[in-house]
């Protein structure tokens, strides 16, 4: 029990919060066929963090969030600029921008690595969920002990704040989001400002990606955005139900993935643990695979089913 509280409680909570937050936003990305924006933004989180670190010299959450938001806006601006001015196809413009910015991030990071800082490329890619240890969390009493609570890893608070912000965003703008997802032209005609909402959505995606960055890395978070939401899309035709399914899938993959990574090898008789972030995303992918094979609403409407 104490072991669980010290080593597993915080990572598990962070994993659950991040998975559910990302899945919530993912619903809208999948509906808008903008899943790859999530891909681009999460890659770009790396240069955002590195640059804000270079400027402020520390890994403070506020600076990181600012860096993330700024990098997301820069990315979107660059993509639009290249797409409109250069008349380049959207996905190609995206490919140009996010690979280049990611390259900048890696380059800066490697430069840094020489001078010795706590960011490195592997962690940026894999994340390090297991490092979120609560040293003071030695028993149930720790929940009521201010000293022990102050020792909680800062990532937990950050994830919680971001999760809350995302929920508030989705609840407040739900009508705008839904309208813009299904019929942007109509949304524009009733002054629901679909372009502004798009930008806000992208910014929230960036913020969520940053909160997830340290825990699960910049690529695995893409699975958290897309897989549960895409699987939920195959389960139902109603948006509310889809959101509920996506949250369920996110929760299941986070809890099961974490437990499997930590204890799975032990059950098989090996003394090792696997990457929890990787396992969570793998499970999310497996859930999507299952939904693709057996989801009740997996077929496209209007396409004849094979007999």
């Amino acid at each position: 029990m104490t072991d669980f509280m010290t080593f597993s409680l915080v990572p598990l909570t962070v994993a659950v919060i991040i998975s559910m937050t990302c899945a919530l936003l993912g619903n809208f990305l999948v509906l808008r066929r903008q899943s790859l924006i999530g891909d681009a933004i999460s890659h770009v989180a790396l240069p955002g963090i590195v640059v804000s670190f270079l400027l402020t010299g520390m890994l403070a959450s506020s600076a990181m969030m600012l860096g993330a938001g700024a990098s997301a806006l820069v990315t979107v601006a660059m993509i639009e600029l290249i797409r409109r001015l250069g008349r380049v196809e959207g996905s190609a413009a995206m490919g140009v921008v996010f690979t280049s910015l990611f390259a900048v991030g890696v380059l800066l990071l490697e430069w840094h690595g020489a001078t010795g800082v706590h960011l490195d490329v592997e962690h940026a890619l894999y994340g390090n969920l297991e490092s979120l240890i609560w040293f003071e969390g030695t028993g149930p009493a720790a929940f009521f002990d201010p000293v022990a609570l102050a020792d909680l890893p800062p990532q937990l608070g950050r994830a919680a704040w971001v999760g809350l912000a995302v929920v508030v965003f989705v609840v407040v703008f739900r009508r705008h989001l839904i309208l813009g997802s299904f019929d942007p032209d109509f949304a524009a005609s009733v002054r629901a400002r679909p372009a502004l909402i798009d930008l806000l959505l992208v910014t929230m995606v960036a913020v969520a990606a940053i909160a997830a960055f340290e825990a699960v890395g910049s690529i695995i978070v893409i699975a958290m955005f897309i897989c549960p939401a895409a699987a939920a899309r195959l389960m139902t035709n109603r948006l509310a139900a889809q959101v509920a399914w996506s949250q369920l899938f996110a929760l299941v993959s986070a809890v099961l993935g974490y437990l499997l990574a930590g204890h799975g090898p032990g059950w098989l008789g090996f003394d090792a643990s696997l990457s929890a972030a990787g396992m969570i995303a793998t499970l999310a992918g497996l859930i999507l695979g299952a939904a693709c094979v057996a989801g009740p609403r997996r077929h496209r409407i209007g396409v004849a089913r094979e007999a």
Binding site: R33, S35, L36, I219, A223, I226
Partner: peptide, 21 residues
């Protein structure tokens, strides 16, 4: 399935990468 190619690409790339990790 009814999912677009974008969702397919995103899901596959991240899931495979995660399994690789």
């Amino acid at each position: 399935t009814r999912l677009g190619e974008d969702a397919a690409i995103g899901a596959v790339l991240s899931t495979f990468f995660a399994f690789g990790v």
